[in-house]
Each structure stands twice: as structure tokens, then as C-alpha cells.
Design a protein around this nucleic acid. Sequence first.
DNA 1: AGCATGTGCAACCAATAAGTTGCTGGTCAC
DNA 2: GTGACCAGCAACTTATTGGTTGCACATGCT
Lengths: 114, 114
Amino acid sequence: MVPAGVDAVFAALADPTRRSLLERLSARPSTTATALAAELPITRQAVAKHLALLRGARLVNAERVGRETRYRLDARPLDDAARWIAQVGAEWDGRLAELNRLLSARARGRTSGR
Amino acid sequence: MVPAGVDAVFAALADPTRRSLLERLSARPSTTATALAAELPITRQAVAKHLALLRGARLVNAERVGRETRYRLDARPLDDAARWIAQVGAEWDGRLAELNRLLSARARGRTSGR
DNA sequence: AGCATGTGCAACCAATAAGTTGCTGGTCAC
DNA sequence: GTGACCAGCAACTTATTGGTTGCACATGCT
């Protein structure tokens, strides 16, 4: 039973622009949409849309202060995604180890058996 | 400088059906598209498309044997994705720790200072 | 008050994605 | 050889997505 948020998190991470936003947010305490848009080849509105989506995945928090809204990263939902990856990876590793065990058992049987 | 494959991997993981396929593949040594389609509410062709995309991200290998093609998982590209997540998470943790350090320093200054 | 700045909302466009149906071709068993 | 099974194309539909432009609203500064 997978946490519900994983879906939104993976969907958020699918877009390179969004990952770039997360990287930039991880370097500053908080920023505005216009400041981020200034560093990217897209309009402020496009950035705002991405930030809204990230906010939907709870990866960023938005706080309105004065006439600007400051966005800050919240990396915690990333844990769910990392856990999913680790789980699939671990299961694969396990299967692979077992396969190797069987193969080397056969190899031993072949060499010692004749 | 991010590995080029990360993009394809994250794009592949964005779709829940694709994640379900990866989970199922992690449990079996190898399977066919029809077998997977039988367990899902979509057609074989849809599954085949997803598998083609996963193959593009090098997350699955396809091997034709007899009249069927067997797909097997290769979890290694997941490492790149996991690394990206860990990096952003770590940077965020670091910033957060520093913030807490500053806050507690101010708190100490407040309590011991009066 | 008046102007610049920072946002938010809505409509629109082009491209992509997920899924379907329909058909053709190879491989196995009888 | 004939029929069943597995797979691969191709065309098409529909929904979503990333992006834009245009406009209206709020806030800060002088």
C-alpha cells in the first residue's frame, strides 16, 4: 500500500524545469516566482504554474508577505519517492543475488562433479 | 552536471501504470507483455507502449525467445534518480540545520542574556 | 495621488501522452 | 497445412501539459 502522495511527487519530478526549480529552491531559504523566472527561459506565469503544481505535491510552501509571495522548499515528500525506488531496487537486488547463487551452485556442481 | 538518463527515468516513473509494471517486474525474473496486460485493466498494446518507454529509459531489457519476447527489470538506472533526490534532500537538510542553529543561538542569547 | 512592481486569473495554442481498434506477420502444436 | 497464440505496426481519439498573452488587483515608494 503506497502512500497517496507518491503519485503527485513523481509527477512533479517528471518535468526538468520543475526539477531545476527544486534545485534552485534547495539553495536559497526562499524566493519569489519572478526571481526564479528571471533565471529561466520561460515566463513568470509558467513558473507560477509549476510552483502551484509543486505546492500540490507539498514540495513547496507558499507564504504571502507584503506584495510578494515567497516559496520555500519542503523536501520531506521526497522521502516517499526515495522509499519506493529503494524498495523496487532492493527486490531486484534480492532476485539478482538469488539468481547468482543458483548460477554459482550450478557452476560448482559442474566443476566438482566430474 | 546531471546524468542524461535521469530525465528519461523520472519521466518513466511519472506514470502509475509504469510504476506498477516495474513493481510486477521486480517480483518475477521475466515476463511477457500479454501476461502483464492480463493483470491490468488495459490492453496489451498499451502495456507494450509502456514497456517500450521503459526500455528507452533502460529500466527493462527485452529479449525475444521463440514466439514471445520476455521483459526483465534492470533497476540500475534508478540509482541516478535516487541520487538526485538524495542530493536535493541533503542540501535542504543542511540549510534547515543551519537555520535551526541560528534560531537556537538567538534563543540562547535571549535566555542567558537577561 | 501616481507610478512601478509583484501576483493572480482566464483564455488560448501546440504538442505530447495514454489508450483504443484493426490488421498483418511469425511461431508453435496438432 | 490449419488453427491458436504472441507480437508488432499504424491510425485515430481524447485528455493533459507546458507554454504563451492579456488584463485586473494589490502593495510599496515618492
